[in-house]
């Protein structure tokens, strides 16, 4: 399993792997927001938690269709399915690799971009914590969506349509935690629920993903 994780990470950082594109996209979205809503600091401060969360969600979405598509095209996926590695494990590793290459970097740069949006000083720790807890769920749900659409020619658009509604609970709890943090309220409840969703996704979705892959490989 570790071999698969290492290979995916290596592929992501090699030329053409697309590592960093998600980050650049995140940056651009955040920069565009003030152009759209105006430069008033109090307004930006108020919407910053939600914008940061939506932007990281979209950035994570951007690279989802690569999770399985390339492996499907060159035959690796079929070979993995018949290898001793359980497909559930492969699904888990794929999600983990996606998180390490998109979710984790997003979490790390988010505070810097929060600065651009005049995020309330109290909210930074909540922003970091909520993204750290929530982005793994985005990767796991996305991996499931990628497995559903793997054999399709124009799967990318369908993938967004399928995955975005599934992101609703994560987005609500994640952004709510930051908002409460910014307002100086207790955000523990939102963070616990966010963590629960992530844990639940990682416990159950690898099985759904593996089942889906088997259907698509038949």
């Amino acid at each position: 399993m570790i071999a698969l994780l290492l290979r995916d990470l290596r592929l992501a950082v090699r030329a053409g792997g697309g590592f960093g594109l998600g980050l650049a996209f995140f940056l651009i979205v955040i920069i565009l927001v003030p152009f759209g809503v105006g430069p008033q600091v109090d307004l930006l401060t108020r919407i910053a938690p939600g914008i940061l969360w939506i932007a990281s969600l979209l950035a994570a979405l951007l690279s989802l269709d690569r999770i399985f598509a390339l492996d499907f095209e060159d035959g690796s996926l079929g070979l993995l399915a018949t290898s001793p590695l359980p497909l559930e494990g492969a699904a888990l590793m794929k999600a983990l690799a996606h998180w390490i290459t998109t979710g984790l970097p997003l979490t790390i740069v988010a505070p810097a971009l929060g600065f651009l949006l005049s995020l309330a000083p109290e909210a930074y720790s909540y922003l970091l914590l909520s993204l750290l807890l929530g982005t793994p769920a985005l990767s796991m749900i996305g991996t499931f969506g990628a497995a559903l659409t793997v054999g399709l020619r124009r799967g990318g658009l369908l993938l967004s349509l399928l995955v975005l509604p599934l992101y609703v609970p994560t987005l609500i709890f994640g952004a709510e935690a930051v908002r409460r943090g910014a307002d100086g309220l207790d955000a523990t409840g939102a963070l616990i629920l966010l963590g629960t969703i992530t844990a639940g996704c990682f416990a159950l979705l690898p099985f759904a993903t593996a089942a889906t892959l088997r259907m698509n490989l038949r």
Binding site: V168, P169, I172, F173, I197
Partner: peptide, 8 residues
């Protein structure tokens, strides 16, 4: 999950 989340 979403149903409960929006209530929250």
């Amino acid at each position: 999950l979403s149903r409960y989340a929006v209530n929250f």
